[in-house]
Design a protein around this nucleic acid. Structure first.
Lengths: 197, 197
DNA sequence: ATAAAAAGTTGAACCAGATTAACTTTTTAC
DNA sequence: GTAAAAAGTTAATCTGGTTCAACTTTTTAT
């Protein structure tokens, strides 16, 4: 019987493309199961992000550090999400982001070489990655619109609404920088909210 | 001899995937040449975006209108760029954006049906769309980072640097809302800049 | 267990950028 | 060509959110 981690990924894949058992197993065989300890980095500036990572359990945070030392969260990933520095991964360039584990985690890693191999091997695999990219594209688009058009309080409420699971699991400073505000201000918003109801 | 509009698109495609003459022509045959007058809409909220649009000449602006009537520019597209409401196009849902011509323009339109047909017909076509989506993904990611981490003045200077061609061609109110600031403030930044050197 | 470090809170002072309003310049439509 | 509408400018005022600083609570390492 397959390990449960591969079971999660199987479901994820089959939701997006129809594969035969054989096709599925071939695809899965290209992934590498890796355990990551809390605070461990899976992507670091200066090094090329060699893997696309599927999170089976645990949580990650991607962030950039700018000149003055401030860090800005770009993405979170929990179970059933993907994370990497795509710019680095796709273009084989040094990463500009950090990706760090917020909890002890288990991930399935697909190297760029194996991804290319899959894409060439079978039209359906290519379809899978195309769909993933299209979804990510639409997701970031929506995020861009929200950041551009909505004030801080709405962004926070909205995030709570849509991703309460993540909101309650990640450190507050990380969430604040993801939402584009300071920890202090987020702390006030939180307080205001809980005292309201 | 082919029309120059198709020539532009051919170059665009061949930069991303290697196709035989026959494969290229089949792909091109699925596009529809359309002339669009200034101020004409090619995507409107409430209607599904039926086409992905390649701009041969002219300029477009995608924007959303929020409750209070303010509009926010989400994307510009000039020659050799694509534009549509991808959320609507991919998911066959009513659009939430407007896409309007800023100049008299010529575009090549690919319907969702024809895109699906191409994706199924040949692995290489699928590769083309996958590459497009991946690039868009990386692009929006970078944009998200800039918006999150940089102050208004930097965002403007940076845009001038990277997209001077667009900056000098689109109305100021559209650029201001794209950069996440008011027209008045952008006007001040411009002034400050020109008086500096 | 316990000390040290990291994360989160609270309040006062401040500022980047928004708002309002009156104006000038450019574009559009007839 | 010309009037009206749209776009852009300028200055005064205002505010959502930041910064700074002192503090409390939670987490981490030994």
């Amino acid at each position: 019987m397959v390990q449960p981690e591969f079971e999660f990924l199987s479901n994820h894949i089959l939701k997006r493309v129809q594969l035969t058992e054989e096709e599925l197993n071939f695809m899965l065989s290209k992934f590498k199961l890796t355990k990551i300890k809390k605070r461990q980095f899976i992507v670091q500036p200066g090094f090329t992000a060699k893997y696309r990572n599927y999170v089976c359990s645990g949580a990650f945070r991607a962030y950039v550090v700018i000149d003055n030392g401030e860090d800005h969260t770009i993405q979170f990933a929990i179970e059933d999400w993907w994370i990497t520095d795509y710019n680095s991964f796709f273009n084989d360039q040094p990463a500009t982001m950090f990706v760090v584990a917020l909890e002890d985690s288990v991930i399935l890693q697909l190297s760029r070489e194996n991804e290319d191999l899959l894409k060439q091997a079978n039209h359906k695999y290519e379809t899978f990655f195309r769909i993933s990219a299209e979804r990510a594209q639409a997701f970031h688009f929506r995020q861009l619109i929200t950041n551009l058009t909505q004030p801080a309080e709405f962004r926070y409420e909205n995030f709570l609404d849509k991703y309460s699971q993540i909101a309650n699991r990640v450190p507050q400073y990380a969430l604040a920088s993801y939402l584009g505000m300071t920890t202090e201000y987020l702390s006030k918003l939180r307080n205001k909210r809980t005292s309201k109801q």
